[in-house]
Design a binder for these strands. Sequence first.
DNA 1: AAAGCCGATTGACCCAGATCAAATTTGACG
DNA 2: CGTCAAATTTGATCTGGGTCAATCGGCTTT
Lengths: 237, 237
Amino acid sequence: MKASVTMIEPNGHLCSDCAVRGIAVCASLDPSELREFEHLGRRVHFGAGETVFSEEDITTSFYNLLEGVMRLYKLLPDGRRQIVGFALPGDFLGMNTSGRHNFSADAIGAVTVCQFAKAPFGRFMEDRPHLLKRINELAIRELSQARDHMVLLGRRSADEKVATFLLAWRERLFALKGSSNTVPLPMSRQDIADYLGLTIETVSRTFTKLERHGAIEIIHGGISLRDPARVEALAAA
Amino acid sequence: MKASVTMIEPNGHLCSDCAVRGIAVCASLDPSELREFEHLGRRVHFGAGETVFSEEDITTSFYNLLEGVMRLYKLLPDGRRQIVGFALPGDFLGMNTSGRHNFSADAIGAVTVCQFAKAPFGRFMEDRPHLLKRINELAIRELSQARDHMVLLGRRSADEKVATFLLAWRERLFALKGSSNTVPLPMSRQDIADYLGLTIETVSRTFTKLERHGAIEIIHGGISLRDPARVEALAAA
DNA sequence: AAAGCCGATTGACCCAGATCAAATTTGACG
DNA sequence: CGTCAAATTTGATCTGGGTCAATCGGCTTT
């Protein structure tokens, strides 16, 4: 959105001390492969609101998210937006069978990605089935999440959607940063609404309601779970 | 649902003249591999309404759908159901990372599957990266469809949902049986409702409305597209 | 061919969440 | 600080689609 500077770091970073080494696609590579892999990717920074790639763009690169949060979304011709997911460090983006991206991806706040040109990456993967296997695992895991989200979108009430979202988001952050009842929400209310298939007003009202009932506290840049059990009960219903 | 007889054919079928040879996972195998592959799968029949596997079941097999249509769904504790997809011949079912199925699968009408025990299949795939690659492609394609469906569930109106469904279903059948304005709908109105995140009444009313407007004709076991352009216009909106 | 059943359709009414419209809070910048 | 502009919250009202309740076929069974 905002015109901000996209930076490409000129120097070579070391995969071996990359923050996502253990959780991203590269977890499947041994040290010697990693050294070769290092030459394929380059770190790129994006500022808040910048678009990393757009739906229908021809796929020229894949991306490994290193730092920050991204929103992945699709737009209808009339502008309605559905966010199909939020990406966190370790997520691998850009795979498709059509040669074109099937969703758009924006940085929410500052983001660092490891960018791979499609062809060299494909060649590298060609004779490294364990990398393919890793990518397949990530795809299958995502598919499972996508199905869970379909249930949420198709069959849950607004209260259940919001409660489920807070718990699932906390769970994802837990895997990265450890457990906490403080749940940072780097995305806007509009983003949350477009993820849950609601309007911004309904999201806001639901937060307020949860706070009035003592289930959460709305804090700067996120929420705090005051009564996790109550939120869980709402989400389960 | 209904207690009907599940049949396992005792004799060996030939993969080489299998109906889905060219479109399923096995499309990635050469003739000699195919002969070996033949010993891994066995054909199993299911009657209308029978459950092939259930969510949370430990995954012991993978399935290659050969004939018929299946509904893939998830249930909420209180019984609300979301159908996450319909499977057609050529679809490969059962992959997951957790060791348990993450959705349930029922036969809609009579179904024939090619069933593979998980471990031998995994071993066979181990040293056949092209099979893994094929499975990965199918997973990524499904992921793309899942994202499209999220947009439908989260952001489309009832009219748009129904119109989009009819066109997408016709498109899938087209790939199997060729083009036609007659669209068979083997699934019930309840199934369609649970797929689109609507109620059965809304689906029924929307069909009737489309028919009154001359866009479709409701026929036994499906619909006929009378004015495909109008349906497309509704779906696009 | 009458009875029973089950899926589908239709009608009447209702409500969760959308829409429209202000406030109010927050943040960025001079 | 003070000033905008943007994001969020809050309130009032509206409505698309849900809920509840009859029918209405089309099969099967006898």
